[in-house]
Amino acid sequence: MTAIAPAPTASAGSGSDVQIPSSPVLELRDLRKSFGETKIIRGVNLAVKRGERHALIGPNGAGKSTLFNLISGHYVPTSGEVVLNGKQIGGLQPHVINRLGLSRSFQITNLFPRLSVAENLRISVMGQHGYRFSMFRPVAGLTAVTAEVDQFLEKIRLTRRRDDNVGDLAYSEQRALEIGMSLATNPEILLLDEPTAGMSLEETAYMVELIRTVTEGKTLLVVEHDMSVVFGLCDQISVLVYGEVIATGEPAAVRNNPKVQEAYLGEEVAT
């Protein structure tokens, strides 16, 4: 049904530097999810290789968001496996999955509205530095954290809004921060849920360019409706229809795949 790489043997403990570049970071094996009687995800197999920029497309209601929620730990799979770097993570708590190297952004802006931009990023960064429940030293003294926050601010081009409240940011700036925060947990794979949803044409173009630069060298899995974003950003595409992946491959191949064309027939395909 789909062209997937054979499952690698578990290689837990091996550092990322010895990983073969093409080994999958994330793999879904016959993943299923039902809500009551309704089967939403019906046996998804998918592999995202290291360094790949993988897009997940599909018509409305195909189960893309559910799939993201299964991978990131928001939902518990009914059956099947989610494998991150050879480790089964399906059903684990979101914070555990995050620490294992998978981070996600949200479709609806999901920030800390009453904190400043820098503080939002700092929450992300300080967890990475092991300051999770630390209460005996002031944050002002954590110079490494502050330096990294500033670095990320530079990357997502929000340095001049450093001390502004997130609630006062423009929408596209909030979206940029959203991605910056997910990125700041230093994940091995980043899941982006419709990063350009609700944006104007110019904003979308800006965002695609921004995502491309900030995620340089990272593995990406992106849900997106806008085909121009998909083709501008990704080198692999999987098509999800009714809870199943019907095709995976390079953009050109997927575009000409008869199954995909059939699935999208009558649907509005943004070009």
């Binding site: 990131s72 708590q93 979101p94 914070h95 995050n98 981070s103 996600r104 949200f106 999901n110 920030l111 800390f112 509205p113 009453r114 904190l115 503080e119 939002n120 700092r122 929450i123 992300s124 300080m126 967890g127 300051y131 999770r132 429940f133 630390s134 209460m135 005996f136 030293r137 002031p138 944050v139 954590l142 925060m181 997910s182 947990t185």
Partner: peptide, 20 residues
């Protein structure tokens, strides 16, 4: 402190904190 800042983040949006 870091935990004190985290408290503010929890107040604003606990859901997001879990995913960080």
């Amino acid at each position: 402190t870091p935990l004190g800042r985290l408290a503010l983040a929890l107040r604003d949006n606990e859901h997001r904190v879990r995913f960080l």
